[in-house]
Design a protein around this nucleic acid. Structure first.
Lengths: 334, 334
DNA sequence: GGATTTACCGTAAACGTTTTCGTCAGTGTT
DNA sequence: AACACTGACGAAAACGTTTACGGTAAATCC
């Protein structure tokens, strides 16, 4: 389409090598020819072809990012952070929406491989043997976000879920609550499910509160499941003064159901969420929650990936700090 | 890194041409050699190099998408739709976060050009002369989403904002409201600002209701600005029974402020939003709003772009249907 | 003033594909 | 037996860069 380096060379009466040199400002030409070349480039509106560059440099200045769902509040925040750093450091990002579908994920990995991306960020899902094998075969840096693996040696960035859940529960206990329900994430989820349950149970145990089966219910992290879980809790008839939801979306669902049942939050019931998504601030009343620094996690992951790409040396995994954001859904019990 | 087509050719004792032919299943080889080649490919774990392919085919199977903010509820939904179709039709998508910054946008356009993307989707922002020039120079298909331009001939997909705003206002009027405030989007925004204001004013006029300056306030589409706008409206002391907010985020802000002031929604005040984002469903009470089919708009835009890429013929712009989603923030006035 | 360095620049190979063109053996036709 | 045709394949050019290597002239050195 546009003019190539050859066209520039011809018009500037130099060789393509010289044009390439001034383009990548390497030494080997006089100031005069530099001026000349630059002028011709501007005149012709020449743009280098990154594809041709990539072919020879074996670097595409592109990274791939895999999300279970790009449109979730969670993913899009992380993506934002990744994109921010990637752009700052002259890389583009290809987004992949896996739908938590193994076939789809494998397809994406293959495509990213064929497109010769320089690195991959893999988020929120458990790293299966299959994924690991192809990732390994690609022989490029990989960073895990909001997930991790003991078996496979990829660096990760995440918060300490168990610890954070412990904190949330402890926070409720210190407010004076002893009948604390939990709405968990997906049953069997080893990444964002089980650890938060463990944190909850451990806090209860440390404060001498027995775990009660019927104050515990599974959800799937989504809003609807939060509504359903809250209803189930209410139907069981077991009394409780607080609920810890393993995601803000589920917490919001609980809030809605409480409202529908005429239960005043926080006066009659305290609710604490998890994630600190945008909705936490926007709910009525604003949601107290444990914050994951998602934007920063995205940024950090991208930084780690890029330094691995540039230096080739493996970086250390990072545990990000969580914190409790006190808004208006938690109060002392009556 | 991995084996190349030459390695495969050598091991299968055929020429690279033959390997290429079976890869792209074109005719010109016996069933036996096909089997042989396929087997060697599997054995060696050969993957074609999309970069090399792109260089010769002048097709990268990649499209670029520009958003003002990838993490907004709005953008991420559109992105999801785009990604869905792109993947279905064997294309990857590079996301760009412009921050509504001209310099940044230009940089992105340049990069996308250098990376030889096959097409571009440009969303939510006004298409300046500068952008148009470089887009034009790239000589690739471009689709506009949630924006449009009379001066420049790119096909777009959007809803009819003026019409939708008219509907929202009319809906309020038909419920019996006559004192209807509006929280507008950004002042001077020709795309999502002015048309919605016009729709609002026109509906008022058609139903014989005078426009009142102090029942009108500008926001910037965001949650905080919705809060601020609502406060301002309340401070002015002018009575109103309903408010039309030009975005769900602002509507949610208005809802929060109403709650803080002890104003019951919808009993004492009706609120209608715009967009039908996920939060509309999740707010307390759930927000009545005019829906834009964002996911479908993303899908359609991608479909249009891809058929332009594949066929080379310009497609028609599309106005998407909006609809009013009745939830629980609008009631008849007392 | 010859030898050596240096600055500047060009030639051509290489990156991994696709595709045009040609070759060659085999088959069928007359 | 001469001919055209077909199917199966290979050789090589091409895509737009980067870079190793070499060359030439001017500058520097002893």
């Amino acid at each position: 389409m546009g003019p190539t380096i050859k066209d520039v060379a011809k018009k500037a009466k130099v060789s393509v090598a010289t044009v390439s040199r001034v383009l990548n400002n390497q030494p080997g030409y006089s100031e005069k020819t530099k001026k000349k070349v630059l002028q011709v480039i501007k005149e012709m509106g020449y743009q280098p072809n990154a594809i041709a560059r990539g072919l020879i440099n074996k670097r595409t200045q592109t990274i791939g990012v895999l999300f279970p769902s790009v449109s979730s509040l969670f993913s899009s925040k992380v993506l934002h952070g990744i994109e921010h750093i990637a752009h700052e450091r002259d890389h583009s990002v290809i987004v992949c929406n896996t739908d938590t579908d193994g076939k789809r994920t494998m397809k994406y990995l293959q495509v990213l491989g064929e497109k010769q991306v320089d690195g991959i960020i893999f988020t929120s899902e458990v790293l299966t043997e299959d994924y690991y094998r192809v990732l390994k075969a690609m022989n490029i840096p990989v960073i895990l976000v909001s997930t991790f693996s003991l078996r496979y040696p990829f660096p990760y960035v995440k918060v300490d879920d168990k610890h954070a859940a412990y904190h949330a529960t402890e926070y409720l206990i210190k407010q004076g609550h002893r009948k604390i329900a939990m709405i968990s994430g997906t049953e069997g989820d080893e990444i964002a499910g089980t650890p938060r349950i463990e944190g909850y149970r451990e806090a209860l145990r440390d404060y001498g509160i027995p775990f009660q089966e019927n104050l515990f219910v599974f959800g799937d992290f989504g809003y609807r499941s939060g509504c359903a879980a809250m209803k189930k809790l209410l139907e069981r008839g077991e009394e409780f003064t607080a609920v810890f939801a393993a995601s803000d979306e589920m917490a919001t669902g609980a809030l809605s159901v409480a409202y529908q049942h005429g239960i005043k939050v926080p006066d009659q019931l305290s609710i604490i969420g998890y994630d600190n998504l945008q909705i936490a601030e926007m709910s009525v009343p604003p949601l107290t929650t444990v914050a994951q620094p998602l934007f920063e996690m995205g940024k950090l992951a991208a930084e780690m990936l890029l330094t691995m790409i540039e230096t080739g040396v493996t970086v250390e995994s990072r545990i990000m700090p969580h914190s409790i954001i006190e808004r208006q859904t938690v109060a002392k019990p009556l």
